[in-house]
Design a protein around this nucleic acid. Sequence first.
DNA 1: TCGAATTAGTAATTCGTTTTAGTAAGATTA
DNA 2: TAATCTTACTAAAACGAATTACTAATTCGA
Lengths: 329, 329
Amino acid sequence: MYDVARLAGVSQTTVSFVVNNVASAAISQETRDRVWAAIHALGWRPNAMARGLRTRHSQTLGLISDEVATSPYAVRMILGAQEKAWAGSQMLLVVNTSGQRDIEQTALQFMLERRVEGLLYATMYHHEVVPPPEIGLVPAVLLNCFVADRSLPAIVPDEQQGGYTATEALIRRGHRRIAFVNETIPMPALFGRLEGYRQALADYGLPFDPTLVRRCHSNAQDTFAVVRELLELPDRPTAIFCFNDKMAMGAYDAIKRAGLRIPQDVAVIGFDNLELIAAQLYPPLTTVALPHYEMGQRAVELLQTLSAGEQLPPIQHTIPCPLVERASI
Amino acid sequence: MYDVARLAGVSQTTVSFVVNNVASAAISQETRDRVWAAIHALGWRPNAMARGLRTRHSQTLGLISDEVATSPYAVRMILGAQEKAWAGSQMLLVVNTSGQRDIEQTALQFMLERRVEGLLYATMYHHEVVPPPEIGLVPAVLLNCFVADRSLPAIVPDEQQGGYTATEALIRRGHRRIAFVNETIPMPALFGRLEGYRQALADYGLPFDPTLVRRCHSNAQDTFAVVRELLELPDRPTAIFCFNDKMAMGAYDAIKRAGLRIPQDVAVIGFDNLELIAAQLYPPLTTVALPHYEMGQRAVELLQTLSAGEQLPPIQHTIPCPLVERASI
DNA sequence: TCGAATTAGTAATTCGTTTTAGTAAGATTA
DNA sequence: TAATCTTACTAAAACGAATTACTAATTCGA
C-alpha cells in the first residue's frame, strides 16, 4: 500500500480511503484515478490478514461436518451454505471430520484461531449430536442435527410433513392401500415420516393397516424381499411409499420381476430425491426431496443475523420437504 | 497474549516462545508451566490473522471448482484435498462457481487477498479449461482438467488404462464378444476409454467389431434402447462395457426385460463407481472407479511441494482407475 | 579465580492494514 | 474583514502476534 501511495504521490491513508471508498473522506476524482492507476500498475491487492487484524472481522464462516462432504446426499447443504456466505462476501472453511472426535476438536480450534464469525455443525443424517462445548464461543447453528436440550439453534428437515406429503400424493391419485417400507434404525426420519403417513391416512379417512407397514435396512436388496412379500399379500397394496430412493430401487426390481407395471399396477414413491437414482430409474421416480440446499442457506442466513449481534432464542427451524413429481405414481 | 504474560508474570515474548516451542529460546520448565496455566485460565487462543500477518503464511489453500461440490461424482476430490491439507495443518477454502466466470474471478481475488498458499482448479468432468491468468500468481494445480498448452501441472484420471482394465477384466472371464456403449459428447473420457478398449482387444488377439461399439447419451433411458438393439444382434455380445454406471442401470433393465440373467447370460461392467448406484443394483455392479479421492490428495501433495519452493516442470499426473469387483461379470 | 559459556529471560521492532485526529488552503458568511 | 465551513488531504496509533537483538545472572574450565 505504501508503494502504491508513493507511485500515486499520495499518503498511504489516502490509498486506504480510495480502496475502501470511505464516505467520510473527501478525495478528489483525479486523486482517486491516480491511486487506482497505481494499484493496477503494481498489481497490488489488499492483505486480508492485515485487514482482518485491524477490523477484527475475518469474513469467514466455518463448517464442521461428519460425513457430509463424503456423501452425495448432503453436499448440497455445503453448497447452499457456501452460496449464502458468498452473497455476504464471506468465505467458507470446510472440514470433514469423518466422525472422529479428535479431528473435530482440532478443526474447531483451528477455526476459532482464524476467528471465524460463525460456525455450522452439520451431519449427514438427521440425528441428535453432542458438539464440543467451545462451539458456543461464536454464533453457531446446527445443520441437520440437534442437541438434546435444544439449547442451540438448528435447521432440520420436516420429516413428518415429508411423510404426509408422500402419502397424500398417493391418496390423491386414488390409492387406498398404501404400504410404507420404513427404515430400521431409530432416528427422527423413521418416526417423523411414519407419523406423517399415519396422519395423512387419518385426515383422508383411510384405515391404518399395520400389515402394510414394514421395516427393513435401507438398501435395495433387503427392500426387494420386503416388497415381494407385500405384493404376495392377498389384498396387495396398490402403492408403496419407500423410506428412501435406494429402497425404491429394490422396490422397482421386485415389482418388475412380479410382472407388474409402475405406476399402472403399483405406484412407488421415494424419499431423498437422489437425482442420480430417481432420474435414472424407469419410470423416473416421484419422490420427496430433502431440502439440503435450502437448509444450508437458511443456516448461514441465521448465522449472519446472529453474528450481527441480534439475540434470538435457539429456535429449531423445520424446512419443508417438497414433492418432486416424476412418473412413478 | 499480553494478558497471559501479565498473569504468568513474564513478558509477551516469553509467552510467544512457550506457545511456539521455540528451540532457540531457553525457558525453564516452571515458567512454561506457569504460561500454560495462564493460557488455560484465560482461555486465550492465538489469532491466526495476526500470526499470518507476521509470518507471511496463511496456512490456507484455495479450491475453485465448477460443479464439483454440487455433484456426487466429484465430491471425493474435495475430500481428498481437504484431508491432505489437514495433514499439513492447512485449511481449505472452497468455492463452487457453478461455471460462472464472474464468480470464478471474484473467488480468485478473494483467495489471493487471503494469501492462499496454493490453488486447486477443479472441474466435475475431465476436460480442457482456460483458467483466469491470475491463477499463476501462486502455486496452482489443475484437478480433473488441463490447459491446452500443458503449462500448468494437472492431475487427471487415466481414462485409457481404465478402459483397458474394464475390457481386460471381461476378456479374462472368457468373453469374446464385448460391446462398448460409449458417450456421445467428445471428451477425453470418450476417446481414452475407447482407446483402452481397442488396445485390450488387440493385446488379447480379439477382433475389433465396429457393430459392437455404440454411442449414446449417458443416461439410463437411452442406454436401455441401445442395449436392447445389441441384444437383438444375430451374434449378440456376451458382455457390455458401459461408459458409466448410470448407463449400466439402463443396461440392467434391458437385459432383465429380455429375460436374460446378469452375469450368466450377459456380463455388465460400468465406470465411475458411483456407490449409490453400483452397490444398490442387483446384482451389484462391477465397475472401474474414477480415483477422485486420490486425485484430490495428489493435487494437494503437489501443491505443497510446489509452495515449498521446489521448481518442478508442469507435469500431467495420470492417476490409475482401479477395477472395483462386485458381481456383474 | 577470571574470562567464556550457558541459562533465562526482556525490549523493541515489524508484518499491512484501518481509523482517529489533525492540518492547510480556499470559499462562504455575517 | 474576520470567523466559520468546506475540501482535500496526512501523521500516527492501533490490531496481535513473531522475531531480532540485547542483558543479567549462573556455571564452567583451565
